[in-house]
């Protein structure tokens, strides 16, 4: 982790040029950094509420846990499949609803199309919902609509809408306004302008973002259950409470496989969208 030596960069400053390092240009600054880091470590670990005796037991406990995890127990496949299916269904439905709702919010959050007040409201909605972690949003929906997949579905919809609409808005703001002007000059109304000048310019990226969001929703659908919002996460959290680690591992492996498939699918589809 030594700072960038100038000897290595001079050899290639023709092809790749990177700014001289901002950090640690001076030896004193370098020592200062390491000292500050050490001081931070001492301070933070001192303030943190850590039960060192309990932590010391960690290694044997981890060994014990691993021993209990193997072999993974796939025998309760009915429960497993039900949970996974519920997670997937939440992810599919939320992505679909999210991608439709996001069009409106995305248009409203584009500074070059929306009137100023609409833009500000839409932007603050997006910032607000993106700041809070999905799990915080999930627990509020659990309080509002009760335990179960509806809370998870609503959570994922909120997360999808804010993510996709932010992307749409950025795309619209970056689009070529000349094309918009040309279509406007033919006497097209605002909806026709959207169809002929805006939609063609943003469609490929929009679809890419939606597919990416489906992939992200599959990942998140496995965790909202931890606060009771449905899906495999509920089952997983229960197995940890019951020290049912062999079933936990079975669920974890299934999640890894699911996430992996989702990622491969998403990469494949996005590479095909030109």
């Amino acid at each position: 982790m030594s700072p960038t030596p100038t000897t290595a960069t001079t050899a290639l400053d023709r092809t790749t040029w990177s700014r001289p390092p901002v950090f640690f240009t001076h030896p004193a600054a370098r020592y200062g950094f390491w000292f500050a880091l050490a001081a931070y470590l001492v301070w933070s670990t001192g303030t943190l509420n850590i039960d060192w005796a309990r932590t010391a037991q960690g290694l044997p406990r981890a060994g014990d846990m691993l021993a209990r995890m193997f072999p993974p127990d796939f025998s309760r496949s009915e429960l497993l499949i039900k949970g996974v299916l519920e997670s997937l269904q939440m992810a599919f439905a939320a992505s679909f609803i999210g991608m439709i709702l996001a069009i409106t919010l995305g248009l409203a959050a584009a500074s070059n199309l929306a009137p100023r007040p609409v833009y500000l409201v839409a932007r603050s909605l997006i910032v607000l919902s993106r700041t809070f972690h999905e799990v915080i949003i999930a627990i509020f929906f659990v309080k509002i609509v009760g335990f179960g997949p509806l809370a998870g579905l609503l959570t994922l919809i909120v997360a999808s809408v804010s993510f996709i609409s932010k992307m749409i808005a950025e795309d619209i703001e970056n689009m070529n306004m000349g094309q918009v002007e040309a279509v406007r000059a033919t006497g097209a109304s605002f909806p026709k302008l959207l169809l002929y000048a805006v939609q063609p310019q943003i469609l490929p990226r929009y679809l890419g973002v939606c597919i990416y969001r489906l992939d992200a929703n599959i990942r998140h659908s496995t965790v909202v259950g931890i606060v009771g919002a449905g899906g495999i996460g509920m089952t997983l959290s229960a197995t940890f409470k019951r020290y049912d680690y062999d079933f936990s591992l079975a669920i974890l492996l299934t999640i890894i496989a699911l996430v992996f498939i989702g990622e491969v699918f998403s990469t494949w589809v996005r590479s095909r969208l030109r």
Binding site: R54, R61, R219, H220, I226, F240, Y243, I256, V259
Partner: peptide, 18 residues
């Protein structure tokens, strides 16, 4: 593939809450 909060379940089981 494993979300932070799922990792947290695992490590709470190992190191205890905190």
């Amino acid at each position: 593939s494993i979300n932070t909060i799922v990792w947290a379940l695992v490590f709470v089981a190992i190191f205890g809450p905190g």
